[in-house]
Amino acid sequence: MYLDILVSGLAVGCIYSLIAMSYSLIFRSSGVLNIGTGEFVMVGGLVGYSVISTLTTNYYLSIIIAMVIAGTVGYLANTLVFHPIQKRGGQDVHVLIASIAILISLPQIGALLWGAEPLSFPNNISQGQVNLGVTQISGMSFLIILLSFAIMIVFQVFFRFTRLGQAMRAIADDRIMSQLLGVNNHKYIAIIFLIAGGLTGIAGVLLGPIYYASYDMGTIGVKAFAAAVVGGFGNVTGAVIGGILLGLIEAFGGTMVSSQFRDLILYGILIAVMLFRPTGILGIKQRRDTA
C-alpha cells in the first residue's frame, strides 16, 4: 500500500520536475517567467491522446510527436510573443502580462479542437505491472520515473559537456557578455524555448494515462511552479528535487484529505513558501538587479 503511494508520488513528482525545469530553463536564459507553461503541458497531453487514438498504438511514438508539437508551440511563443515585446523595449511586467494571454487563450484553443470532455488514454498503457522480484509496481509509474531520470541525466550532460550547452549557461550568467563573445543569444534562446516546450509536452503525455487529458489540465503548471520555487527558482537541480518532494507530499497528503481538497496541498505549499522562505529550501539566492 505505502509502496504504491510512494511509487505513484514519485512518478507524479518526476512530471512536476520536468515542468519545473521548463520554467527554470526559460527564466534563466531569457528572463521570461512564462505563466502559461502549464498550457504547453495541455498541448502535449491532448496531442498525445490524438496520436494514440487515431494514428498509432505506439505510446513512445505519441510521446515523441507530442514533444515536437509542444516544443513548436514553445518556440512560437517566443518568436511571436516574448521576443517581439522584449525587442521593442517592453519591460518584465509587459512580458508577464503577455504570458497571461497564453494562459487564457491556449486552453480555449484546446477546448475548440478537442472538446471540453476529459479524454482517457487507452487502458493498456496504464495498467501494466513491472515485476521487481520481491514486489510489483505500476508499469506506467516505472516508465515515468525511468524516462524522467534519463531526461535529467541527458540535460546534465548536455549543459556540462557540449559546446551548445555551455553557451546556453553563459547566456544565463550574463546575457551581454555572451554576445560579446559571438554567441547569437536570440537563436539559442529560441532553441531553449523549443527544448522547454518539448519537456512540457513529454510531461503532458506522461500525465495523460495517470489522470486524463483535457483542455483544463494546464493548472498543473501552478503546482509545478510550486516545485520550482521549493527547489529555489531558476535552479535546474532544485527543480528536480522540488518536483519529487512535492509529488511525494501530495501523494501521501492526498490519502488524508478528500479528493476535492487534494489540490489545496500544493497551492498551500506554494503560498507558505512564498510567505516564509521565498528563496526555496535549497536557499539559492535570487538574482538581484541593482542597475
Binding site: 553563459a170 550568467d173 560579446l180 563573445l181 559571438g182 554567441v183
Partner: peptide, 23 residues
C-alpha cells in the same frame, strides 16, 4: 548584430571583466 561583429574579428574585454561566474 553583436555576434556578427565578433565574427568579423572585433572582440571586447568589457569593463568589470564579466566572467561567467557559474562556468
Amino acid at each position: 548584430p553583436a555576434h556578427k561583429i565578433v565574427s568579423k574579428g572585433i572582440i571586447q574585454v568589457p569593463e568589470g571583466r564579466r566572467i561567467f561566474p557559474t562556468l
